[in-house]
Amino acid sequence: MAIKSFGLLIDVTRCIGCGACSENCKEINDLPPEIDDKLTAETWTVVREKSDGLHVRDLCRHCVEPACVASCLVAALTKTEHGPVVYDKSVCIGCRYCMVACPFQVPCFEWHSPNPRIRKCILCEPRVLEGKSTGCAEACPTEATVFGERETLVEMARARIKADPDRYHNHIYGLDEVGGTAVMFLSPVPFEDLDFNTDLVNYPLSDITWKILRQVPTIVAVGGVFLGASYWLFKRRDEVKKADQAVESGPEKEADDV
């Protein structure tokens, strides 16, 4: 495909926990300046301190085949061809199924608004369309967050691990998890030590639901034939022994419909 699909590479070994990414995200996306300690409707990325003094960002991973997109019944969430997973409030019904479906617990809801929206990192879609980097990558002083084409980032991550195998745990988180994500991580320690979920399947979660939904026409066809045939069969049988039936079904006279 000619269209470039972008993403982020976040290198935990380089992150100093300054929080510049969170601050710039706030500014660029017109969010109130207070930074919450977890993802909320108004904080789209946070930096958390883990043991060993490591710092890890949390944000939407912009999955290649996102569960949130598959789950949204009105397609309010969409995966754009440039990488960002974006949201359209004009069609969203606020069912919050996307929140249930997202394996990374990313989408947040405006719980105290009478006109609530789903809010989350949008990979700075407007900027990406202008050919610019994301706000968080731009603000990062140590290049712990790098913006680029996903394919290029994967190469970069592989090269880093290869060049310095002692520095890195040999895994790119997001390469295959839930079918791959546009935001990927490198870490000096195994990812479970950073409280990442390491039990995720390596195929898109929507494969599971689609496998089931695909059966719908079959179920309708088989069920329809079964019920139709049963109706015909039982009616025939009934005609044969109608007399018995009338006695058995009580004192009321039989209605001769159906």
């Binding site: 789950s71 949204c72 019944l73 397609a75 019904i93 069912c95 929507s206």
Partner: peptide, 15 residues
Amino acid sequence: NMWRVITNPNIHSPL
């Protein structure tokens, strides 16, 4: 927005 279910269907969604 509930009527949007009719105009914006996503057949991949169980919901």
